[in-house]
Each structure stands twice: as C-alpha cells, then as structure tokens.
Amino acid sequence: MKIDLAGRTAIVTGSTGGIGLAIATGLAQCGARVVVNGRRAAAVDRAVATIAQAGGAAVGFVGDLGAADGCAALVAAHPSCDILVNNLGIFEPRDFFDTPDEDWTRFFEINVMSGVRLSRAYLPGMRERDWGRVIFISSESALNIPVEMIHYGFSKTAQVAIARGLAERMAGTNVTVNSVLPGPTLSEGLAEMLRPEQEKTGKTLEEVAADFVMEHRPSSIIRRAATVEEVANMVIYLASPLASATTGASVRVDGGVLSVI
C-alpha cells in the first residue's frame, strides 16, 4: 500500500510537538501541504523546520485555537483544507473535588470547542468538493475514565460523540469523520513527567514509561507506552483515500488497554 496525499492540504492543531508533530510530519511525507499550529512562534518555526528536514512541506500558523478568535484567525488565513486533525488538547491530573468550574470550562474550550469550531468551518467545503477527512484525537480515557482527571475524560468522551455525530451528518458523501483513541504514549509531556523517576532509578526512559503503564494501565497488552509515530501511523491511514469506508469509528491505538471488543 502506498499513501499518496499529493495536492491535499492538511491542518493539524497543536502540532509543534508530540503526537501532533508526528502526524504533521507523516502527512507531509505523504505529499500533503501541512499547516502546523502552536501558540509560540519559535515552536512553530522549529516544527516547520523539522518537517522540511524530513522531506515535507509545511507552513506555520501561530495562534491559540482554544479560543474562538484564534479559530477564526486560522480560518481567515487558511480558508480551505482537505484534512483536519483536531489534535489540540491538554491534560492535568486533579481530584474531582478540587477541580473548580474554570478548569472544566478551560478543558471544554481547548479539548472540545476547538474541534467543534474548526469542523464547523471546514466541513462545508469538504462536502462541496465531496472529499475530506476530519479526525479527532481523543483517548482511551474517553471510555476508561481516569479517576484522577475526570474532567479530562469527559472532554475526550465528548470528542468521540461529536465525531460520530458529524460522520452521520456527512452521510452519503466522501467525507469521513473519525476519532482516534491513543493509550499511554511517550510524548514530550509524559517524558517530562517521568524524568525525575528516570534520574532516580537510572533506567531508560522507555523502561520507566513501561513501569508507568503497568502501574496506571495494567490492562495494557503491549505493556509499554506507544511511540508518537505509532499513533501517527493510524491517523495518516485514516486521512488517506485508503480509509474511504471507515467513518463514524473510534479507532483504538491503546496498546490493548481497553478490554471491550
């Protein structure tokens, strides 16, 4: 199989690092012109340079897509796209009883409403051209709600519901909408969180990440953290013409954490 995205424009939100950068790089390597997004110009520039070094084409958009005006500015700068990857998201462990209203609102605005606003802006053009891909990067936490961050799990469940609803809204067209559910993934955020344990034990980062997975997600079948590239590979497939019969799906890249069939 060969994935050819030549002539397609892709927007990947929150793509200056981690899963987002891996997705943006992979899409660009398949021939797509990718719009990279982040809140800081220096980080966006680094991501664009990274993609160029990998042989892809990318442009940057600096803006906070967790706010309505940031989404509007992106759409004004890039009014059309063929592939929209709603990857922007935040997470933060906090007990339910210590999570104030403003945190619930912040998670909803960033994790959920960014994808709602951009899907609302770009899906009509995809429908008119009768081809498009919208992918929400959710999480296995959408189904396996983490007790230590219920507010995060709630936002990820919302993404799954929106993706399914939008897929049905696009019924009968060649526009697909799906959600992807990664499990524990060794992104920069997890690496930073595990750095003190790595320094204390002398283990490799991968070994410490595997210990973390088995402590917090003991149902994992692969018994390690996934790489960002492993998650990106699934997203790239769903973004391609090869995935034309997959829509309204919640596709798991969770290492077998979820026991539901």
Rank of each mutant, 00 (worst) to 15 (best):
residue 184 P to H: 00
residue 43 A to V: 12
residue 158 A to E: 03
residue 83 I to H: 06
residue 117 R to P: 00
residue 112 V to K: 10
residue 210 A to S: 13
residue 110 I to S: 00
residue 187 S to Y: 09
residue 93 P to L: 10
residue 97 F to E: 14
residue 115 G to V: 09
residue 206 E to N: 11
residue 40 R to G: 01
residue 170 M to V: 12
residue 20 G to I: 08
residue 174 N to T: 09
residue 63 G to K: 05
residue 15 S to I: 07
residue 213 V to H: 00
residue 167 A to L: 08
residue 65 L to N: 05
residue 161 A to I: 15
residue 3 I to S: 05
residue 231 V to N: 02
residue 108 F to I: 10
residue 45 D to P: 02
residue 175 V to Q: 05
residue 58 A to M: 11
residue 32 A to D: 04
residue 197 E to K: 15
residue 186 L to K: 06
residue 65 L to Y: 05
residue 235 V to G: 01
residue 56 G to W: 06
residue 96 F to G: 08
residue 236 I to N: 00
residue 180 V to K: 00
residue 77 A to T: 13
residue 78 H to M: 00
residue 193 M to E: 12
residue 157 T to V: 13
residue 218 P to D: 00
residue 254 D to C: 10
residue 52 A to H: 13
residue 242 L to F: 09
residue 106 R to T: 11
residue 88 L to G: 02
residue 70 G to K: 09
residue 86 N to Y: 04
residue 141 S to F: 10
residue 149 M to C: 14
residue 257 V to T: 14
residue 163 A to W: 04
residue 128 E to N: 08
residue 53 Q to N: 12
residue 32 A to N: 02
residue 118 L to S: 05
residue 91 F to A: 15
residue 143 L to F: 13
residue 231 V to S: 07
residue 214 M to N: 07
residue 178 N to S: 11
residue 211 D to T: 09
residue 139 S to G: 03
residue 203 K to Y: 10
residue 132 G to E: 06
residue 179 S to C: 08
residue 39 R to S: 01
residue 189 G to M: 15
residue 30 C to W: 02
residue 170 M to Q: 09
residue 209 A to C: 02
residue 13 T to R: 06
residue 166 L to C: 01
residue 21 L to Y: 02
residue 65 L to A: 07
residue 162 I to K: 03
residue 151 H to M: 07
residue 23 I to Y: 02
residue 44 V to Y: 01
residue 260 V to D: 15
residue 1 M to R: 13
residue 27 L to R: 03
residue 52 A to S: 14
residue 4 D to L: 11
residue 8 R to F: 08
residue 219 S to T: 15
residue 210 A to I: 07
residue 114 S to T: 15
residue 234 M to N: 12
residue 77 A to M: 07
residue 260 V to I: 15
residue 129 R to Y: 04
residue 246 T to K: 06
residue 46 R to V: 11
residue 83 I to M: 06
residue 208 V to Y: 00
residue 159 Q to I: 11
residue 234 M to T: 14
residue 114 S to W: 02
residue 11 I to P: 00
residue 42 A to K: 13
residue 20 G to T: 08
residue 195 R to Q: 11
residue 130 D to A: 14
residue 17 G to R: 14
residue 23 I to K: 03
residue 238 L to T: 12
residue 112 V to M: 08
residue 246 T to W: 01
residue 26 G to W: 02
residue 220 S to Y: 09
residue 203 K to E: 06
residue 251 V to R: 08
residue 205 L to Y: 04
residue 35 V to P: 01
residue 88 L to E: 08
residue 55 G to W: 10
residue 172 G to S: 05
residue 170 M to T: 15
